[in-house]
Computed example of a mutant assay.
Amino acid sequence: MDKPQVNPFVKSALEYGPILAFFAAYLWLKDRVFVIGGTEYDGFILVTAGFIPLFLLAMGALWWLTGHLSRMQVVTAVLIVIFGGLSVWLNDERFFKIKPTLIYLLFGTALLFGLLRGQSYLRVVMEGLMPLEEQGWMILTRRVTGLFFGLAALNEFVWRTMSTEAWVWFKTFGFTAAVFLFFIAQAGLFKRYGLESDED
């Protein structure tokens, strides 16, 4: 059965809206401290607490509209609940900051495991978006694996050596820009190993 067609603007709003909302709310509340139940929470913790249900609602709406969530989205949601929840519960922002590291390490390790078996797990996720020859998928998978491990190391460097505000800026825009530029740089690979569809 064909997947329901969803307006691309709506889909993008559901995927990126919670992240942008987190960014905007953090800039608004970053210098404020809230006392809840006798415990002081800074703006970052309060924004994190609001981000978790907002993200889950967005993913729920996306699933309702499309009937599908990718494995990456599901794993990301689980880690957001676990590490975001730990940050709020323990009033410690470090748990939420290491979440991207764990996500990228997890996906990088999964792709590496597939490569060691001579398979491209990336192909399972992305084949419908860009059909490639087998060799092209293996090359792209090796490069994406390196990207994931590189982003994990970069996240560790940023949150451990820079301010929370710098990390929020980097998390919101830096990762997105890095992934975008990475795939732009793969244009030669797509051209060399791309497959034409039957309709073409």
Rank of each mutant, 00 (worst) to 15 (best):
M1H: 08
M1D: 09
K3P: 10
P4W: 00
P4Y: 00
V10C: 05
S12G: 08
L14Y: 00
L14H: 02
G17C: 00
P18F: 05
I19H: 05
L20V: 15
F23A: 07
A25R: 04
W28R: 15
L29G: 08
D31T: 11
R32I: 04
R32N: 10
V33A: 10
F34H: 11
F34G: 13
F34E: 11
I36P: 10
G37C: 07
T39W: 03
T39L: 12
E40Q: 10
E40A: 14
D42L: 02
G43R: 07
F44H: 07
V47H: 02
T48Y: 02
T48W: 01
P53I: 00
L54R: 03
L54E: 02
L54P: 09
F55H: 14
L56R: 07
M59Y: 06
L62N: 14
W64K: 15
W64R: 15
L65E: 05
H68I: 03
R71C: 05
R71E: 08
Q73D: 09
V74S: 03
V75M: 01
I80P: 07
I80K: 04
L102Q: 09
I103E: 07
I103T: 12
Y104I: 04
L111R: 11
G118A: 00
L122F: 11
R123A: 14
R123M: 06
V124A: 14
V124H: 11
V124L: 15
M126L: 13
L129C: 02
E134K: 14
G136T: 06
G136R: 12
M138F: 04
M138V: 02
I139L: 08
T141V: 05
T141F: 06
R143P: 09
V144E: 06
L147S: 04
F149Y: 11
G150L: 00
G150M: 00
E156Q: 13
E156I: 08
F157K: 08
V158L: 01
M162W: 12
T164H: 01
W169E: 03
F170S: 12
K171R: 15
T172H: 04
V179G: 10
F180Q: 05
I184F: 11
A185M: 06
Q186G: 11
Q186P: 12
A187H: 14
L189I: 12
K191H: 12
Y193H: 15
G194D: 10
L195E: 13
E196H: 10
S197M: 10
D198F: 06
D198L: 13
